[in-house]
């Protein structure tokens, strides 16, 4: 093989491993680092406090063991209610998300104003935390699982609405154009060409939303919105740590089972 003559670039050697940041970028890095350090100071987090806290956690764990299973049946019923809140809240949220997502998908929305308004509504649902929604619905519909279910529904709309819309925007435009060319209506095009293509993403997002709703549902009880959270709060307030341990274990099992089932379903469906 003939020798290749060295070019000017090869004589100069490779470029630097790291690019030198620009002045503005450098200032941004320094400012971000300074803010992080200041924040650590303001949140009062210190090695000393951590060191003192660890034995207390050990002490609490000691008081929690062995778990008290005497109220297992009642805890099981509350756990079932928690899961039912998650299922119904997620299901309602997913169903409502679909039409909202169509209106919030850039090239499917009937008008730019509708697109902007629905996108804004979905963002609002997503940015307000589920615990705040639970507080609002406790005031609106009273204490109990209905408030929690509605809070989970709104939270799911915020989550699924965005991802459904993005999934539809990312679908192949070819089948859509084919449907337009053969005279299909806008609705027909969405249901025949867009939704079938976005379906794997819809299923994936829906299963994640169920997992998310299950995790959220266990804490909503803290504000009186139903579910097992209230049991945990009462147990902790009354220093019944062994019962609290049983509740935490039950929550762990529920979340784990839902996550595993969701992963299995995802692998089967997609």
């Amino acid at each position: 093989m003939a020798d290749v003559p060295a070019t000017a670039a090869s004589r100069a050697g490779p470029p630097p491993r790291f690019e030198r940041p620009g002045t503005l970028t450098f200032v941004f890095y320094v400012a971000a680092l300074a803010f992080l350090i200041a924040s650590i100071g303001n949140v009062d987090l210190s090695i000393e406090r951590l060191a003192n806290g660890i034995p207390r956690i050990g002490d609490l764990m000691g008081r929690m063991l062995p778990p008290d299973f005497s109220r297992l049946q009642s805890i099981g019923m509350k756990l079932l209610e928690t899961f039912q809140m998650a299922v119904v809240g997620a299901a309602l949220g997913i169903i409502i998300s679909l039409p909202l997502a169509i209106l919030a998908a850039r090239d499917l929305s009937p008008h730019p104003l509708v697109y902007t308004a629905v996108r804004g509504l979905i963002s609002f649902f997503r940015t307000v935390p589920d615990l705040i929604w639970a507080l609002i619905f406790v005031i609106a519909v009273g204490l109990g699982p209905a408030a929690g279910t509605l809070a989970l529904m709104v939270d799911t709309i915020g989550f699924c609405g965005r991802f459904f819309a993005e999934a539809m925007e990312e679908t192949d435009k070819g089948p859509r154009e084919a449907m337009t060319a053969l005279g299909a209506s806008r609705t027909g095009t969405v249901f025949s060409a867009v939704i079938p293509q976005a379906m794997p993403s819809f299923i994936n997002t829906s299963l994640f939303s169920l997992e998310k709703a299950t995790r959220s549902s266990v804490v909503l009880g803290l504000v009186g919105a139903g579910g097992i959270g209230i049991e945990l709060k009462v147990a902790m307030d009354l220093f019944q740590y062994r019962q609290a341990a049983t509740i935490i274990l039950a929550i762990f099992v529920l979340v784990l089972v839902v996550e595993r089932a969701s992963t299995w379903l995802r692998s089967k469906v997609l």
Binding site: G174, P175, A178, T180, A181, L182, G183, S185, A193, Q197
Partner: peptide
């Protein structure tokens, strides 16, 4: 226009089928 398009066949360079159906 939709009614007219219904009477006009259009074959694309790429088939443009809905792949999952």
């Amino acid at each position: 226009l939709r009614r007219l398009r219904a009477r006009i066949g259009f074959v694309f360079q790429r088939h443009n089928l809905v792949s999952r159906l």
